[in-house]
Amino acid sequence: MILRYILRRLAFLPLTLLLVALATFVVLRLTGNPVDIFLDINRTPEQVEALTQRLHLDLPIPAQFLIFLRDLLHGDFGESLQFSGSAATVVWDRAGATFQLAGTALGLAVLLGVTGGIVCAVWRDRLVDTIISSIAVAGQSMPSFWLGMLLIEFFALQMRWLPTSGYGEPRHLVLPAITLATILLPNFVLITRTSILELMGEQFVVTGRSKGLSRGRVLITHILPNAINPVLSFLGIQIGTLMAGSIITETIYAWPGVGRLLIGSIFKRDVPVVEAAVFFIATTIALANLTVDVLQMLIDPRIRRS
């Protein structure tokens, strides 16, 4: 049954991606002629013509879109204008860095966020709750570029524990991952806390306690499985935020991921790379959402049945 659900969702995936592709395509052509923007101001007419033909900009827009779709079906976004090689390869080569950063950040956010939320709920209104909740609210309101600068200032310049930026070794990953995790972490704390507290008043919890189960036992076997679902829903919604946040984080820490590639390519109107990168990000978000939904079904039988 779950398999059928997955298949049904996967069947809709192409439609989502098609809409994304269409939107990217239209926006790229609405914001000026890519040829004018990509080529040097001293361009020659021959160069303009060569690039116009290469991007099929001499054809009517519907024809351009059809060509774009045909190539898309073959997984071909065209050759990058600034890199050597196909746009898809260029994006894929940078995907490893983004997965590494976003994956670590997400892991950190979930682990610390859920743990923090549990602590807050269990010791509700005690000092530890006040401290963690306050930090979470502060973290929620802190822009990530600002936090990034503070972290660099403290850990790289004052303490000299970590490099200011860069990529390659595990120590390079620490600050960017913390910065990116902070975008979601406070919310995980607050959502976990709220959903546990809500459940604590539920009848099945009261029943569990009254038949003599320990608080810990009730928490682990009855409350947590029910509390995890709102956290997962939030996670699903926020995958997009995470990808957007990675663009800023990658810029601050000179991290060679897809986010920075996308920004750079937009400024230069490297059309094939922009299309490939947006497509990549959309696919990642869609698949992540699907994974979250499936996880929810596995955890919660009520969703499975509806």
């Binding site: 600068m149 790289a156 310049l157 200011t164 930026s165 860069g166 820490y253 000179a254």
Partner: peptide, 18 residues
């Protein structure tokens, strides 16, 4: 030759000796 797109990070890299 390393790319460090953010100005403040670039200064931090210089000051830290990286």
């Amino acid at each position: 030759i390393r790319t460090i797109p953010d100005g403040s990070t670039r200064v931090a890299a210089l000051v830290s000796g990286e």
